[in-house]
Computed example of a mutant assay.
Amino acid sequence: MASKDSPPPPIRACLFDMDGLLIDSEDLYTIVTNRILAEHNRPPLPWTIKAQLQGRPGPQAGQIFHSWAQLPLTHEEFVQKQSALQRELFPNTKPLPGVPELLQELKRRGVHMALATSSHRVNYDLKTSHIQHLFEPFAQDHRVLGDDPRIPPGRGKPAPDIWLLALKTLNTTLAQKGEPEIRPEECLVFEDSVPGAESGRRAGMQLVWCPHPELLKVYQGREKEVLAGLTGEHKEDEEQELESTEIEVKQGRRRVGLPGEIDDGWATLLDSLQDFPYERFGIGQRPAL
Rank of each mutant, 00 (worst) to 15 (best):
L207Y: 00
V79N: 05
Q70E: 13
K50F: 07
E179N: 14
H234I: 03
E76G: 01
R201V: 02
L230R: 11
G20C: 11
L227K: 06
D141E: 05
R280S: 15
P180D: 11
L53D: 04
R280H: 12
G110Q: 14
G229M: 12
L174S: 04
R108W: 12
V99D: 04
E76R: 03
A51I: 09
E246G: 11
E279T: 12
A116N: 02
H112R: 05
V111N: 10
R222C: 06
L15T: 01
E261M: 14
R42Y: 08
F65G: 07
G98K: 13
H212K: 13
L258E: 15
L37H: 12
W266E: 05
S129Y: 07
Q104M: 12
I31Q: 05
L273Y: 08
Q70P: 13
L106V: 10
E198A: 06
A197K: 04
L170K: 07
F281Y: 08
Q70Y: 11
P95E: 08
P153D: 03
V218K: 05
F90N: 01
L71H: 13
V226S: 10
A13M: 00
L53V: 09
T245A: 03
E179F: 13
K250R: 15
K4D: 08
E233S: 09
E246Y: 10
E191Y: 03
L85A: 10
I131C: 04
